[in-house]
């Protein structure tokens, strides 16, 4: 319970950084932190106390493995989500570089004013 709540606090900190900060790169960092928090929450939900990783080894008892392993489904979903996060991060950094080239600043309010 306390672990879930701490994950939510991490998410809220990313959201705060996204909403309240003026710097564009800080906004990108906020999105990255939110990404971390969501991935961690999904893995935490699937954790079994004292569980083993969902990978069969050679001399392992199958029936015991089924009752002992952690949940493999959130892991499969998060595996794709992490790589997508990297692609999105690259796109956001590209947009930041482009904005800097156009307006010579990272300040969001400045950019809005220059826009007219």
């Amino acid at each position: 319970m306390i672990v879930y709540l701490l994950t939510f606090i991490l998410f809220v900190m990313g959201l705060y950084c996204l909403v309240a900060k003026k710097n564009v790169v800080k906004k990108v960092i906020g999105i990255v932190i939110m990404d971390y928090a969501v991935n961690l929450l999904l893995i935490l939900v699937g954790y079994r106390r004292g569980g083993v990783a969902p990978i069969l080894l050679k001399g392992m008892d199958r029936a015991k493995f089924t009752t002992q392993s952690v949940d493999p489904l959130p892991q499969a979903l998060v595996l794709t989500s992490i790589v997508i996060g990297l692609g999105v991060l690259a796109l956001m950094v590209a947009l930041c570089i482009r904005l800097y080239e156009k307006y010579k600043t990272f300040d969001m309010s400045e950019i809005r004013r220059l826009r007219g």
């Binding site: 790589v83 990297l86 692609g87 690259a90 950094v93 590209a94 570089i97 482009r98 800097y100 080239e101 010579k104």
Partner: peptide, 24 residues
């Protein structure tokens, strides 16, 4: 796919981003 994709985006950031610095 993933290796080529990430290498391509780094090429984009390195080459096209460099033009930005030169313009600055």
């Amino acid at each position: 796919k993933v290796s080529a994709c990430l290498y391509a985006v780094f090429i984009a950031l390195a080459i096209f981003g460099r033009a930005v610095y030169r313009a600055m």
